[in-house]
Design a protein around this nucleic acid. Structure first.
Length: 181
DNA sequence: ACAGAGATCATCT
DNA sequence: GATGATCTCTGTG
């Protein structure tokens, strides 16, 4: 990939921490991600391609956006066919006022702390599902300096809970939940 | 602070 | 008919 996204979702999830993600002037710094691999029982792609998740089997850099629990949109970036990284939280830096309006809350810590919240704050919907990142209204800028990344068990899944494939920026107040330890 | 329930829908059994 | 990679509100300690 042009952006240097690792093909392995676990490496990509860690790599994405600290990157800047924005959509039409609203966005911030990615502080929380999760990796989902095609050989991973917790992944939508585990049982192979089927209707509704086709974009997860597209080429690296494709956006996979799906609806969760009937109401929330969740944003993933495919890093290899069948494997993707779920963007779980960002530290809001641009377009604060716009995001507050869309979310209907004032507390900046509640603007983008969670996969459903961040898509709502940025105005991301299923319309972006299957679109290539570089041809989408989304902008992704890799991190510049080093930073401390922590990892832990993923959230909200029933299978393969033991895999520590959730990554976060150490000490960030914008995480959807704190990391154990 | 923590626990439980409801909202809502594509996909699967 | 059941199941989620969720969020919010409400009731209780």
């Amino acid at each position: 990939m042009a952006s240097g996204l690792p093909a392995d979702p676990v490496g990509a999830a860690e790599w994405l921490i600290g990157s800047t993600l924005s959509h039409e002037g609203a966005g911030g710094i990615i502080v929380e991600t999760e990796a989902y691999r095609d050989d991973d029982p917790a992944s939508h792609s585990y049982k192979g391609s089927r209707a509704g998740i086709a974009s997860m089997f597209a080429c690296a850099g494709t956006l996979y956006v799906y609806r969760s629990y009937g109401l929330n949109w969740c944003l993933n970036i495919v890093c290899r066919p069948g494997s993707a990284v779920l963007i779980r939280a960002i530290a809001p830096t641009q377009g604060l006022e716009r995001m507050r309006q869309r979310r209907g809350v004032d507390d900046p810590r509640l603007l983008c702390a969670g996969p459903g919240r961040l898509t709502q704050a940025l105005g991301i919907t299923g319309a972006l599902d299957g679109v290539a990142l570089q041809h989408s209204p989304l902008t992704l800028a890799p991190r510049s300096g080093g930073l401390e990344v922590v990892s832990g068990p993923r959230i909200g899944i029933a299978r393969a809970v033991d895999r520590p494939w959730r990554f976060g920026l150490a000490g960030s107040p914008f995480l959807s939940r704190p990391f154990p330890g």
